[in-house]
Amino acid sequence: MTVQPGWYTDPAEPNTQRYWDGGGWIGAPLPADATPPPGPPPAEPEPPTSPAPGTPATDAPGSPGGTGTTTTATPTARPTSGLPGVPGSPVQPGPPGAPPVNGVPPWPGAVGPPSPGQGGPVPPAWGYPPSVFPVFQEPRPHGKALAPLGARLAARLIDIGAVLLLNVLVNGWFVWRYVEEIGPVYREIVRRSVAGNSSTEGLPPVSAQADWLLLVILVIAAALWFAYEVPSVANTGQTFGKRVLRLKVVSLGTDEKLGFGRSARRWNTLGLPTFFWYCCGLGFLLQLVDCAFVLFDRPLRQALHDKRAQTVVVRLDRSVDTPSPPPTADRGDTPGGPTS
């Protein structure tokens, strides 16, 4: 059993109606508010065809072999539109026994809910229309694509290496003094471990100077990181690592410079936990959670420090910043032609 023939709204032209003969649309469309005839539409007049070259269109009386009748070509079948809502698609009748939806026979193999105004469910091969299941589109802040996670990680590693180099130059002496202070304790612990002794009694005491040295090291490390990252992000939105990877920190609200205040707020969430490294590495754990938040945040892929400052990291288009070469003089050479 097929869909009953009759007049239905044409999904390709909602303001018209056409006749469905059980296998496809036939006849000329009528206005949607017009009263259609009770049966199929009358046959459309066949368009005149031009005769082939050298063949007379009519046999004129008196001509050799002329009979006075008009010669016409065999009429071709009028193409019909198939998939509702898709003009010019091949004819695909609805499944047996399926009633019309919104006045239009459904598509074959239809699954899922009907799309409003489309006349029926959507076939699996075409996917669901945006009106039923909107296709997710990644946001583009200020017209720029979000930075890939791999590029962000690479840029952060470059920045860590740069800050580490600064610490070697500025903080190196304090680190060496700290190692000298705690060296006897660790050497005794290692000696006992090799001997199979896990006792902690009788270990050399750690001097109070070691605690002060550790605090000074952390303060200098945080200060160097702050001086490296905050001013550059405030002015250009880029650290050295982000410049190498062509990434940029931008504000969600405006495309202007972040400014020192917003850049400092962004760094504080990630940089201040450095002082908690003093507490058995607690600061490193907080920083790890902050940076790993981009793996789960959608749709802007913001880390916690990005959310605090209302910023997002985007990727710069190479075609925007790369200057185009100056145009060469036109010598009138044609494409593919010889050159002088």
Score class of each variant (00 low, 15 high):
residue 184 P to N: 09
residue 184 P to M: 10
residue 186 Y to E: 15
residue 186 Y to F: 15
residue 186 Y to L: 14
residue 187 R to W: 12
residue 188 E to H: 14
residue 188 E to K: 15
residue 189 I to E: 13
residue 190 V to N: 12
residue 192 R to P: 09
residue 194 V to R: 08
residue 195 A to F: 04
residue 195 A to L: 04
residue 196 G to C: 09
residue 198 S to C: 08
residue 199 S to I: 06
residue 199 S to F: 12
residue 200 T to L: 10
residue 201 E to C: 11
residue 202 G to H: 11
residue 203 L to S: 05
residue 203 L to D: 04
residue 204 P to C: 14
residue 204 P to R: 07
residue 206 V to Q: 12
residue 206 V to I: 12
residue 206 V to R: 05
residue 210 A to K: 00
residue 211 D to Y: 13
residue 211 D to Q: 13
residue 212 W to G: 06
residue 215 L to P: 04
residue 215 L to N: 13
residue 218 L to H: 01
residue 218 L to N: 00
residue 219 V to K: 01
residue 220 I to L: 12
residue 221 A to G: 10
residue 221 A to E: 05
residue 226 F to W: 15
residue 227 A to F: 15
residue 227 A to I: 12
residue 228 Y to G: 13
residue 228 Y to F: 12
residue 229 E to M: 13
residue 229 E to C: 07
residue 230 V to Y: 01
residue 230 V to L: 03
residue 230 V to W: 00
residue 231 P to Y: 06
residue 232 S to P: 02
residue 232 S to T: 15
residue 233 V to F: 03
residue 235 N to W: 15
residue 235 N to A: 15
residue 235 N to R: 14
residue 236 T to R: 05
residue 236 T to D: 09
residue 236 T to L: 04
residue 236 T to N: 10
residue 237 G to T: 02
residue 238 Q to C: 00
residue 238 Q to P: 01
residue 239 T to N: 07
residue 240 F to D: 01
residue 241 G to K: 01
residue 241 G to I: 03
residue 242 K to F: 03
residue 242 K to Q: 07
residue 243 R to G: 07
residue 243 R to Y: 04
residue 247 L to A: 00
residue 247 L to T: 00
residue 248 K to E: 10
residue 248 K to M: 03
residue 249 V to K: 01
residue 249 V to E: 08
residue 249 V to Y: 04
residue 249 V to F: 09
residue 250 V to T: 07
residue 250 V to Y: 04
residue 250 V to N: 06
residue 251 S to A: 15
residue 251 S to K: 12
residue 251 S to I: 05
residue 252 L to H: 02
residue 253 G to Q: 09
residue 254 T to Q: 11
residue 256 E to P: 04
residue 256 E to F: 05
residue 257 K to L: 06
residue 258 L to S: 08
residue 259 G to R: 07
residue 259 G to P: 00
residue 260 F to Q: 09
residue 264 A to D: 00
residue 266 R to C: 03
residue 266 R to N: 08
residue 267 W to K: 07
residue 267 W to M: 01
residue 267 W to P: 01
residue 268 N to W: 08
residue 269 T to E: 10
residue 270 L to Q: 01
residue 270 L to S: 10
residue 271 G to L: 03
residue 272 L to K: 14
residue 272 L to H: 10
residue 272 L to F: 14
residue 273 P to D: 07
residue 273 P to Q: 06
residue 274 T to K: 03
residue 274 T to I: 04
residue 275 F to W: 13
residue 275 F to D: 01
residue 275 F to G: 05
residue 277 W to I: 11
residue 277 W to E: 15
residue 280 C to I: 14
residue 280 C to L: 14
residue 280 C to N: 13
residue 282 L to Q: 06
residue 282 L to W: 05
residue 282 L to H: 03
residue 284 F to I: 11
residue 285 L to Y: 05
residue 285 L to S: 11
